[in-house]
Design a protein around this nucleic acid. Structure first.
Lengths: 246, 246
DNA sequence: AAACCACACTGGTATATACCAAGAGATGGT
DNA sequence: ACCATCTCTTGGTATATACCAGTGTGGTTT
């Protein structure tokens, strides 16, 4: 951390000035990725402001994606964004691992579920159809980055839940069930984290996030998997290819 | 607005309880889309909390995309999300207008620019190449929804800036320059609004937003337009199609 | 060496208060 | 009828203070 300046009167709000100062420290490498930012109380003292003002500054850092907070541990500098090509259905997991990304998968839960009114149309099954459901937490370089919940049609993938789900499911389904992904429909939106998601990602609730839903289809065009990923929005960007109509 | 309840001690923070109460009013239609939420001071009095707590509640509504604020005018209920299919390059404008969406375009600025280090590679030109640049603000049902800045190669589209830019540029370029979009490369990311963007959208700065960048190519695969859209993230969702590798 | 507990420190919540600047509407003078 | 001004309301910024609930550390006890 570089030293403070008085900078009383430059027009912009005090908390903005603090944000700019912290940004500078990050840009100059004084504060590298994943290093701790000064605490709310430390910022208050360093810059001679009240704790609420220090808090506003640090919350602005979060809102701008420059920092993330771990509950009651402190705030840390965000790393560079991860790129994710959504047009190419080759599994994100397989792709990342072959690209050398340090990716860990933690199985959070698994079980049976029944298709409800929102899932049934996506998978083209009747409401009440038995599904398998599993939720996994993905860490990149040890940092929780996104949560994925997938739903597959139970009758089509017997014993899936007894297998090791800490790997690419694309690969798993290919090897054991001769089902491979051919196309998908994807929806991306911004929304706030729910309490349980925030807990898994180690973030404060209500934090803005990116939700990515995808329906995965086989070569006959039949949907066999519905997945919902919740990403720490400041950590990723999504690329796609577009082609004129059809 | 329905009446308040004491709900002192249900475990969750006081401001959360207020959020839930307001959510309920929205879900029940007591507060329709674009209607005003009670002001910070009104919430404070209605629920018997301090203004700072009322503020936290209303800010949480914003963070969750349920409300938006107009600077110093008040907070309002967000409308339903707009769907935007990014896989189909048919112009958003043409598509929306044919679909009956009430869409207005305001030209914010236009002028010449030179390709810098970030634009030049995207458009496959040399740094310093002359470009035309224009920024437009898009309103849907009268509400500012996104800002778009497009850059095109000047030599290829003479007099473009003298034409009426309050229409689909896809159509404009087709009719006058026999250039039509065939494919595109798109990147979507979440980021915070900059001050000038916030002003145009009538929102508070630092608000989370969706940035959508696209490089548009003609039938020979040559890039002729680079566009950057900044969307109010809570107002839209983006769909895409994916196909296994290639 | 392992288990435990106390303490310091973190962010999270909350109150009360104060002043500013921008927007909206009423008021009043021309 | 028009325009300027005054006033009220709004969110935006800021201070000072208080207590709570997890986290991690270090020292003490077993």
């Amino acid at each position: 951390m570089s030293q403070i300046s008085p900078m009383k009167t430059d027009g912009s709000p005090r908390f903005r000035q603090i944000v700019e100062h912290l940004k500078q420290d990050i840009a100059e490498g004084v504060l590298p990725a994943h290093s701790a930012l000064p605490s709310e109380r430390a910022v208050a003292e360093l810059y001679g402001v009240s704790r609420m003002t220090a808090r506003r500054a640090l919350e602005a850092m979060e809102a701008e994606g420059l920092a993330y907070s771990k509950q009651r541990k402190g705030r840390f500098v965000s790393p560079k964004r991860l790129k994710y090509d959504i047009s190419n259905m080759v599994s994100f997991v397989a792709d990342a691992q072959s690209g050398g990304t340090d990716l860990e998968i933690e199985l959070v839960s698994r079980g049976k579920a029944k298709a409800d009114r929102s899932l049934a149309p996506a998978l083209a099954v009747t409401v009440g159809e038995e599904l398998l459901e599993y939720t996994r937490l993905f860490r990149i370089k040890g940092h929780a980055t996104f949560i994925e919940t997938e739903y597959v049609i139970a009758s089509r993938f017997p014993d899936l839940l007894t297998r090791d789900l800490r790997q690419s499911t694309t690969r798993l389904l290919e090897q054991h069930y001769r089902t491979s992904a051919r196309s998908g429909d994807i929806v991306i939106r911004m929304r706030a984290l729910q309490a349980d998601e925030a807990r898994l990602l180690g973030l404060a609730p209500h934090h803005a996030a990116i939700e990515l839903e995808q329906v995965i289809r086989d070569k006959s065009g039949e949907a066999f998997c519905f997945g919902r990923q919740v990403w720490r929005g400041e950590l990723a960007e999504f690329s796609a290819k577009a082609i004129v109509n059809g």
